[in-house]
Design a protein around this nucleic acid. Sequence first.
DNA 1: CAGCATCCGCTTTGATACTG
DNA 2: CAGTATCAAAGCGGATGCTG
Lengths: 217, 217
Amino acid sequence: MKTYGEYCSIAKSLDVVGDRWTLLIVRELILRGACRYTDLRNGLPGIASNLLADRLRDLEAAGLVAKEEAPPPIATTLFRLTSRGEELRPVLEELMRWGMPLMSEEGPADAVRSHWIAGALELGLSDRHPEDAPVSLELQTGHEPIVLKPHDGTIDIELGSAEHPDAILSGPPKAILGLLLGFVDLPEAEATGVTYQGDHGILARVVAQKAPSAAPS
Amino acid sequence: MKTYGEYCSIAKSLDVVGDRWTLLIVRELILRGACRYTDLRNGLPGIASNLLADRLRDLEAAGLVAKEEAPPPIATTLFRLTSRGEELRPVLEELMRWGMPLMSEEGPADAVRSHWIAGALELGLSDRHPEDAPVSLELQTGHEPIVLKPHDGTIDIELGSAEHPDAILSGPPKAILGLLLGFVDLPEAEATGVTYQGDHGILARVVAQKAPSAAPS
DNA sequence: CAGCATCCGCTTTGATACTG
DNA sequence: CAGTATCAAAGCGGATGCTG
């Protein structure tokens, strides 16, 4: 990117991360940790291979990403955020918060990845009954399941299947998100394709309070 | 901008504000309030006229900016942020914070505007002697003076000259910022072109404590 | 003068194919 | 797996011209 040539902190930030795709690459590395080239490619549907290579070079030169030759058993190169790269997390969190209302528009051809959904939930959910015993709730949406484990006031969110989930919620991503973020109730969500099996108390434990300006419909 | 086509809050945000210049236009409107086309152009040195018009149209269509026909005495159109646009403030603040360390690199040809400097100071300074009487400190740097008025624990920051400043600090932007943000002391700053007239207590009252990861040199 | 629209050369991006 | 090579299309930067 051509520099803006302004003595302004915001402009200088954008000189580094303002290129198309750049912040999304950082998002992938923040949400998923160290990634292989192929993993990044999969998490950035539509990116041209040469652009990904270019951006990774730029990010490395700027000191936000480091290449790492993985040890013998794996034998592949990993891309990992440096601490300077990690410091972009608050920026991405605010962008994510700002964009929440836009999640009510699921473009018909939008790609879906479960770790994006998990990231949104991490920002919006908390364990509303800290004193209850830990349970696990499996979400079946996106390209792989997500497990929510509310305990002691926080919710651990992991990708993958739970072995014995206490409840299962499945359906299209937009409906799931609308339900969990508290903008539609269960009957409404069921009308848009959601099914729920399990104790209703578990669902009530994780569903967010209706908050201002974060409204998937 | 072509949409990323991802069902992700960050990607959807960038679909709206990820274009070149877009966030800098929002920055201008946040730092300066409602602006005329010409004011924006002046605050965005280097932008092509057609691009500014394009971006303003896009921002209006996205509901972040509203055009407003100013009343009779002025007779010009003003561009103003909507509330949805204002909500980008936290995003810009985090970007600004992240970019602070980059302010130590003042490119030789970087454009300077005093309201950018003022924005950075607003994020980094506080009144360290709340019980002292209000005073005013004039900064002579950038394209117009800035007045700092510490009082009751906060610092009001305004553009323009003070009528009777209690102290005057002048010099190149980078040196001024380095001094005020606490990364060099007065003797060092003086070696890089800063001059200070006034009670040293006034300066000590506003200078920030050395903080991690925000270091103009 | 304020607020654009048009034109043109250049750079960046996107899509696909190919390679160590 | 981790890229490079190629090329068409889109976007950008700069200059200029138009309209109230």
